[in-house]
Design a protein around this nucleic acid. Structure first.
Length: 324
DNA sequence: CGGATTTGACCTGCGC
DNA sequence: GCGCAGGTCAAATCCG
């Protein structure tokens, strides 16, 4: 019963989001598949062939050198990618929406990752913090950093993802009664930022957007749990990591996919399925060709459980990658 | 007392 | 060029 209600709620949210579109100017990529079924080929990895786990779990089992789940979404090393022409429809910044695991969060959606790290971004990642900030100011352009967005149904705005964040600003968002909070990773040398805001359409949904990649491991992250990510992207260098969702430990979380994104991301065949349950669940089921796991029967596999990943075909693949 | 948060001001990009 | 909105800074304040 409860499950049914949850599903309905998720669907509702999904619809709302779909109709109104998230605030994200960035693309939110919907996925039809359970994150774990998703082949994790990050667009970043031009050679997706290197690693194609069939499920997230596979990823986990495969590699462990990477600390965070988000690694999966880490942008590829440095492909000097000439920004795809507008026609390519590849948005400057695609984001991956996933579910941030927090106690209060119940549903999440995921989008795609932005893959292009322009030189500027790369520099920032390497440079000291203040330098990054200054650079940012100079090049304040939206959608340039790799982003990873989560839509979480949560009562709390700031979800604990395992990293330490420091709030450095808050702004009112146009067309939204809810303010947007800006956080920066407090780890020295790590310029990862994240924005947290509530959906104006559905106040119960918190949209968390991670920007940049962690240059360190999650301070409170149990190593094995999430390492799969990096592997997924087959990125030879695991240094950069996305915020690690410690939230994934929470059970009974449902995930919702964001509405179809205006991105040229390759979306799954038919839109996305709004509700995804924690992966690793025993009762995975296919809905419309989508594999889902039942949150109720969900077992604790670590943070990853709650992660929902876009299906392989829903993953946005950069033009350059596609060509490869 | 040190670290985190708040909050108004400032800067930058973008659309008109 | 101007105004708006988003993003960041930094001083003040709060809290453990």
């Amino acid at each position: 019963m409860e499950e049914e209600k949850k599903k309905e709620e998720v669907l509702r949210n999904r619809d709302q989001m779909g109709n109104s579109g998230l605030l994200f100017s960035d693309a939110i990529i919907p996925n039809n598949n359970n994150m774990f079924d998703f082949p994790f080929i990050d667009s970043t990895d031009s050679s997706s062939s290197s690693f194609k786990p069939s499920t997230f779990l596979d990823l986990l089992a495969t590699q462990d050198y990477t600390p965070s789940l988000f690694d999966l979404f880490s942008p590829p090393p440095p492909p000097p990618p000439p920004p795809p022409p507008p026609t390519s429809a590849v948005p400057e910044s695609s984001e991956v929406l996933n579910t941030p695991p927090t106690p209060n969060s119940s549903s999440v959606s995921c989008s795609s990752t932005e893959r292009l790290l322009d030189a500027d971004d790369a520099d920032r990642d390497k440079s000291p913090f203040n330098k990054q900030l200054k650079a940012k100011k100079k090049n304040q352009k939206r959608g340039r950093e790799p982003r990873f967005a989560f839509m979480t149904k949560s009562e709390v705005d700031h979800l604990d993802d395992g990293y330490r964040w420091r709030k450095y600003g808050q702004k009112a968002v146009k067309n939204s009664p809810y303010p947007r909070s800006y956080y920066r990773c407090t780890t020295a040398g790590c310029g990862v930022k994240k924005r947290v805001e509530r959906s104006s359409d559905d106040p119960s949904v918190v949209v968390t957007t991670y920007e940049g990649q962690h240059t360190h491991q999650s301070p409170i992250m149990p190593r094995g749990a999430i390492s799969a990510g990096a592997a997924a992207f087959a990125s030879p260098q695991p240094p950069l990591v996305f915020p690690q969702p410690q939230l994934f430990r929470n059970h009974h979380q449902q995930y919702t996919y964001a509405p179809a994104p205006p991105v040229d991301v390759v979306t799954c065949g038919r839109g996305f399925d709004p509700v995804f349950h924690s992966f690793g669940g025993e009762e995975r089921r296919r809905i419309d060709g989508i594999t889902c796991s039942n949150s109720d029967s969900f077992q604790d596999h670590g943070l990853l459980q709650d992660m929902i990943v876009p299906s392989s075909n829903s993953l946005q693949i950069p033009e350059e990658d596609k060509q490869n």
